[in-house]
Every structure is written in structure tokens, then in C-alpha cells.
Design a protein around this nucleic acid. Sequence first.
DNA 1: GGTCTGGAAGTAGCC
DNA 2: GCGGCTACTTCCAGA
Length: 874
Amino acid sequence: MPRTSVSAAAPSTLLPACLRDTVDFQPFFPFIMKAAEEEHYNYASSSLSSNLSLGVMNSSLSTPCLQSPNPVISIIPSTSHSSGYGGNLDSEASGYYLSPNIRPNGTPTLESPRIEITSCLGMHTNNQFFHEGDIEETIPNTKRTHSTVTLNLPNVDAYRDPSCLSPASSLSSRSCNSEASSFESNYSYPYTSPQTSPWQSPCVSPKTTDPEEGYQRSMVACTLLGSPRHSPSTSPRTSIPEENWLTPNSRPTSPCNKRKYSLNGRQTSYSPHHSPTPSPHTSPRVSVTDETWLGNTHQYTSSAIVAAINALSTEPIDMNDGIPIKSRKTAMDHSPSMSLKTEPACEDHNALSPGGDLSPEEYSGFHHIRKGSFCDQYLSVPQPPYPWVKPKNISPTSYMSPSMPALDWHLPSHSGPYDLRIEVQPKSHHRAHYETEGSRGAVKASTGGHPIVQLHGYLESEPLTVQLFIGTADDRLLRPHAFYQVHRITGKTVSTTSHETIISNTKVLEIPLLPENNMKAIIDCAGILKLRNSDIELRKGETDIGRKNTRVRLVFRVHIPQANGRTVTLQAASNPIECSQRSAQELPLVEKQSIDNFPVIGGKKMILTGHNFHQDSKVIFVEKAPVPIIKTEPADEYESAQTCGPMNQGLTQLSKPYYSQQIMMPPDPGLCLVPGFTSCQQRNTVMSSSPNSSPKLHDLPSSAYNKCISNSGHTQLGIQQSTGGVPTIQEVPRSRVVHPSSPDQSSHIMLQPQVSLHQSSSCPLGYQQTVYPNSPSSPVPSITKEPSYLQPCSPNHSAVMGQQQQQQQKVQRNESPTSQPLSLPELHEDSNHNLAPIPVTIKREPEELDQLYLDDVNEIIRNDLSSTNVHTEL
DNA sequence: GGTCTGGAAGTAGCC
DNA sequence: GCGGCTACTTCCAGA
């Protein structure tokens, strides 16, 4: 996809640097900017900064501001990002999951702490647990807004794994559509007890306005009862007037009414009785009779549940009557997922209807996979000893569920010969669509195509299936996202067969991995659905918040059957994807800069490639100080360090940091290119990559993030006039804080400039460099790069350095004895005040690094901000 | 006509 | 309580 590029003629007009803030440069740089859709965010910040820094550093030191009167605009095809992120969680883990029927901690997967009876189930009429009146009496008004009624069950307190709780982004898997694991348990042992009732976990939207929504919010949690066979009346858009269905306020409102309505409205609609359109097809499903449907639902007898499951099964439903096309389509679109869950016996070839939008051919192939692989493989898994369970009547998915790890488990991306890789990472931004919206298409790759996942090392001939779900961007605890769900994209533009299913209340796309395709799958069928925050947050037990929780990852899983009957499960997570709209407000992002410097007289053309260049975006050329003080940050890729070594040393007298792109001082007079726009770094994510690398996203603690925004100024790169009259070129500290749990933190370095405003230009910068290790959850010991410092040259600087030393000591206190050298150079000042690399010691991260991260990062941020606030205003 | 996509209006929540 | 700001959600329109 083309990216916006801006080429500006070399400035010929000189303006004093001091006028930079007052001079309107727009006229001379009125570029474009139909900004590209990709990577709007500061993910590419480093590239931007580095480029700009280059420009700065190679600019004239004495030239006043320059402007380009006649910018040339060109569109340059986007460069693809490499998938440097890897996106593989626990990629270095050596172990792998062998499908036990119990969790590693010994907790059976079927345990569930409660029963959640949801309004969407339509069970109320016959539900012997609750009547609406009961609910109203027992549940406060506000609570009644929930469609979930929770029955606390005794002796099941241990169900939830406390480790999965996170205040930042909680039990997504459980939240999205409720108790993930518990619901998975439902599938795992669907008939075991009321505790594992499939009727729990609501995620019921108070304003279900279309079948998709109904599906998303209700069906997911109410899979068994929310069959597409249901009366269209279940869809408020079909049989229920919006006015009745919705609360008077269509905006996010108290879900009370809506949910209450949902209680009422679905009360009847979910009964198969009320389906006006019984399928005319010969359905493989078991007919849902009064007995099966209503008779003993409260007891969750096997027959009832089986019937319910079968009721969801497969058959495309004729819902044409009275249902909008979209509704019908959506409803049918979900059929496959239902069918998947209730897929009949493996030997029953005819039982599973292709349904959905799978063509017979597609279905045939996919079914082959499912039958040939899953069934055969997973039949070897020990069966739960429940006499009423008929394995052959259980779909492979449901059957394997007991032996499959929960979606919130951390799993390695490779094990033994197998390696699950995301060959092509998704774009860093994909605007998710709400249920009230139409699809916004499939997630795309930064290269313009689609993400690609491939399983390496698999030499068998049996096809496999890769599962895809939307996970959190929290590396520390990857789990299904509470507020986002994968959305199956269909259509002529989709070439990849997919199958939608539900695991643990999380929508999962299953995509075949075919040996003939080298076990590679192009993920062009996965969109992202946004669930309303209010719907999720109001759910009982939901601790996550949706606000600003807009980053997700694509999580891929593949289950590889082993000869011993067990299954190896690998998992890989993509780079984070920003799912909010934001594009409209997105900030300019320069990804590439054609030239680093040019003569002050102008005459050259500089091409900037990036995104979100707006008409009011400006490129400002400012005078560069004779001896500028540069405040910058490193790129986070070691390659940069390698390339910025001696060969660049002549370029700067300040430092030859590991990451040359951003710390350079031009030996020759030149121009300072300063983005006259706000930084793209005003995000809680930072892309730390070279221009040619894939974006690497890092969480920034919200507090720090806010501080960065408020204190760090808006410019990513700027020039300021120091009190001594020496302009200080600085890259506003963006608090390049690498999230402690970033999956690739091992390659990230936090370089914290500690430059005093009054610091002499000859004074070397002090840097605190910290390599943030892998996620604490990672089985691989993480490393922390011991901070390295430059020798202070002034008392002021000494103070700063002392502060750094404290941090260093703090880090050291947490160091484990095991340390290993890293080839990364450490900066030191040579006799000429140049910086030369010196060995750096990398030490392993302590166990309690999790806390260390927080403390240190916060401290670093504070220090960073405090030391740079004075620099931000130009 | 439907889907995809970008933009923006309206609203809620926070400060 | 009000205004400003930001984020969220929904709606609209164009391709």
C-alpha cells in the first residue's frame, strides 16, 4: 500500500530558528496527506526519529531555518516491515504443552466457580433457578442491568487462577464473553455438572441490534441455546422494534433496560418453539424437543445438553422470513461455528453440513482436515469417564477441548522440530468494527497483504488447523481479549477457508494448515470485532476496563498430534495491533527520509515517507547549533548498534551510541529537519524500529504515558536554544519505555538521556541503558543490561549521574549472580570526548523483575521527564 | 446493492 | 456545576 511521501525541495529561505514557533511554515510545505492507513502510530517512531535525527545531525550547524517553498509530493510504495517482532510468545521456551486433561496445577479444566445464567438463553421461562421476578428481587437495580445471574457454587473457589487476574487487562478470556476457562470447561466436559453449564457466561449486549451482535454478545456465551435456529425474534432488528429493543438512549446507556429487555425479549425467542422457521433441511442435529430443551435444563441432563448442542449444530437455517438480509447472513454465518462445536461423529460424514459460506469443496477439504486430523488424533486422548458422553457425537473441537490448553495459557511458539511462526505480521493498526457497524475487513499486513502464519518442522502429511483468536497486547499475560473478538471475514476477497468456533467464550477462527501449502496459512479471513466496553465491564467478575484498552494481538495456535497420542500445542502471537479509530486524529509519521542533509542553499529534494501527513503538517528547517546537544533515544535494534559503530564515529563527537540513527551530530553544517507536527509518540505504544524494521510496540505504563504526553512535549524532535545560547537539539524524550513484558524486549534498550539544559556541549551525554528482558512469564531467563554511563563532566551532570547510579544500583541489587557478556557496546568517552563502545555486561533478570520493572521504569520515566521537561519547549 | 473504509457527530467520562 | 478534553460508539457517505 502506498504510503504518503513528501518530497520537499531543499529549503532556500532562511528563517531564524527562534522564529520557528511563530513562523507559519505551512505555505512552504503544504503536503498531502491522504495518509496511509498503515502504522499511523508511533510504532514507527524510531524510524521517524532516527530519520529526523539524521537530518538534524547532518544539518548545518549554522544555518538558519530553512523552508521549502515548493515541496514536491510523491507517493512511494510502502516498504514492508520485517517481522522483527516475532510475536512469538515464549518463543524460546523449550517445553511444550502436552495435552493433559488437567491443568498444570492439577486443576481440572472443568472446574467452574459459578453458574451464570444469562438472559439471552431464553431459559427464564422454564428456568427453575431464576424467574425474572426473582432476579429483580435479588439483584439491585444496577446489577439487574446485567443479564448475568451468578450462582456461586460451593467448593469451586479454586477455579480461577489468580495469576490470570490483571488489573490492567483482566480475564479477557473470561470476560469477553465471560468465563473463558470455565466456559471452556463447558466444552471440555459439557455434560458434567451444572458448574459447567454451557449456559453461563453471558456477554450479553444490552443493545443487541443485529444478529451478529446477538451472536457476539449472546450466542457466544449462549452458544448452545443461541442457535441460529432460534426465532428471528431473537434479533431485535428483525422482530423487535428498535424502539423497544433499545433503550431510549441509543448511546451507551445503562444496560439495565436493555438487559432487562433482553431478559424479557429473549425469554421466548430462544425457545425452539418460537422459531418460525424450522429448518426444512434434513438436519444432522438432534431435534430439540420440549423434553430436551425445557424438560430438565436446570439439571443439565445429558440428553438436554446434547440436544442443545445438537440444536446448535450445523444446518444452515432458513431464516429468510422476516429477517433482513444482513441478519440472515450473519446468522448463517455463524452456523459453522456452531457446527464446529457440535460436529457429529467423525465417521458421520454427512452429519456436518458445510453450512456457512464454505463451499462444498472448501468444506470437503476442511472437513477432511477436521476429520482426518482432529478426530483421529484426538480420539486417542483419554475420555472423560462420563457414561453419557458419546465421543463420537462430539465434534473434534469439543472433544479435544478437554485436552487443549486454555486460551489464556502461555505456550511456546516452538517445540522440538516444530516452530509456529508468523511470517508476515499484521499491520500495527486495524480499526475494529463494532457490532453496529459493518465489517471493516480483514486484518492486513503491513506489506499490504495479509498476515501469514506457518508451521515449520511439521513433516507429516496430515493437515492441521491453526486457531486464531484475539489476544491481549499484554505480554505478561497473553489471553483472549475481553473487548475484541476475531471476526470471520468472508467473501470473494477471502481466499482462506476458515471456520469459526468458540472456545472458552472466545471466538476462534480455525484455519487449515495444509502440507501442500507448506503448512502456511494466509490470514485474510480474520477481522476484529469490538465489543462495547459497557457490555463487558458491567459483567460480573470483569475487572478489565475497555477504555484505552485498544491493542490486541492475533494469537495463533496449532495442535500437533504426536505418536504417543498426545498433542503438542504451539502458540504464536502477532505484533500488537491498535484497534481504535484514531486515524482521523492520527499524527504524522515519517518513516523514511530520503536524505539526511543537504546544503543550506537548497536545491535538493528530500522525500519523506510516512503516514498521516496532513495539510497542516509542516516540515520545519531550523538552525542548528554549532555544537548542539542532542538528546535522543536509541533505536532498539541491535543491528543499529552494529551499524553505528566506528564508521559513524566521525559523525558525532557526542556519542556513537548503539543506535546511531538517533544520536548523531553532523560534522558539517547543514540543516535541521524538524517535524513541525506533534509527535507520533503520543501513544502508549512506541514503535522502536529502524526504518526498515517492523514496528515494535511497547506498552508504556499509563501513568508514564500520560506524563510523557503532558510533560514531554509534542515534538519528537526539536531544537531549543539553551541558556548558553547554544541550541540544544533534542529528541523529546518519549520515554522509550519498553514494556517489561514485551516479547522482544531482549532486543530493546532503554536509553535514557540525562542531559542538563546547561550542559556543556562538550559534555558527553549520560545514558542509562537498560535492556528489558523477556516477559517475566517467559521461561527463558531474562536479562537486564547493566546501565552504563558516561563520565560526568559537570557537577550538574554528576547529580544526574548519581541518580542514574542509584538506578543502576537498584538494578544491580536485583541482579542475579548469573551474568553474561553481551556484545553490545557500552559507551565511554575517549580522550576526544568521543564515545566508543566498550563491553557491556548483561545480567540475568531476577525473579522479582516484574516489580523491578515497574519501579525502575517509573523511576526512569520520572527522571527522564524531570530532566527533559525543561527541554521540551522550544 | 452490499461491503469496505474513512470520517465525523454525538455522547460519556475524566480532570 | 461547568468547560475542556479525550475516548467511545454510532452513523454517514464515498469508493
